[in-house]
Amino acid sequence: MELIKWFTPEQFNDALSSWAWIGLDGKTPLFTSVFGDVFFGAQDGVWWLDTIEGELTREWDSLDQLEAELNTAAGQEKYLIAELAHALEESGLVPGADEIYDFAHPLVLGGELEVENVEVTEMSMSLDILGQIHDQVRRIPPGARVDIQVS
């Protein structure tokens, strides 16, 4: 199974418009994990948008360092969620060319990191919605009571 996905600049533009709040200026999307986490090149290194946590971090000084880490089992598990991806493939759930794995109940809203919570969704739509969700969640005051209803 291929654990990374390649998309066009237009697809990334559509997908990342709702993530502007996180600070994407000066960063060029390179590829995604099969779960939609985005890897960016920038003048100061390589950045990782963790769409589960809603965090953007500078992880590597160079593309060579990124490649070396993604060629390790630990790197594949941390950044590509390899074990779950392989389990999904074995279950018969495989994303199409423009799709990624998506959590039906987003983890930031209490969903679980498990096969039963995963579906395939068009990448641009999935990332756009996740960006909106994370933007709203980050604005919730600490200690606020939130009732979440998922159908």
Rank of each mutant, 00 (worst) to 15 (best):
M1F: 11
E2D: 13
E2K: 13
E2A: 08
L3Q: 13
I4S: 12
K5S: 12
K5R: 15
K5E: 04
W6A: 01
P9T: 07
S17F: 03
W19R: 08
W19N: 06
A20C: 04
W21A: 15
W21P: 02
I22M: 05
G23H: 07
G23T: 07
L24M: 09
L24G: 03
D25P: 00
T28L: 14
P29S: 06
L30P: 00
L30E: 06
F31Y: 12
S33P: 00
V34Y: 01
G36D: 08
D37F: 01
V38G: 02
V38S: 04
V38Q: 02
F39H: 10
F40R: 09
F40W: 13
A42P: 06
D44T: 12
D44C: 05
V46L: 12
V46P: 04
W48P: 03
L49S: 08
T51Y: 01
E53Q: 05
E53K: 10
G54N: 05
E55Y: 02
L56T: 08
R58P: 00
E59V: 14
D61G: 15
S62V: 02
S62I: 03
S62R: 03
L63P: 00
D64R: 09
L66E: 03
E67K: 14
A68P: 05
L70I: 14
A73E: 14
A74T: 10
G75Q: 04
E77A: 08
K78N: 13
Y79L: 13
E83D: 15
E83R: 12
L84C: 12
L88H: 04
L88G: 05
E89G: 01
E89L: 02
E90I: 04
S91A: 15
P95F: 02
E99Y: 03
H105R: 13
H105C: 05
H105P: 00
H105E: 11
L107S: 01
V108M: 11
V108L: 10
L109C: 09
L109A: 10
E112Q: 14
V115A: 13
E116C: 02
V118A: 09
E119W: 02
E119L: 10
V120D: 02
M123N: 02
M123Y: 15
M123L: 11
S124N: 06
S124T: 08
M125I: 10
S126G: 09
S126L: 03
D128H: 14
L130N: 04
G131V: 09
Q132A: 15
I133D: 09
I133L: 14
I133W: 11
H134W: 10
D135P: 00
R139N: 13
I140A: 11
I140H: 11
I140T: 14
P142G: 00
G143K: 03
V146Y: 06
I148K: 05
S151G: 07
S151H: 03
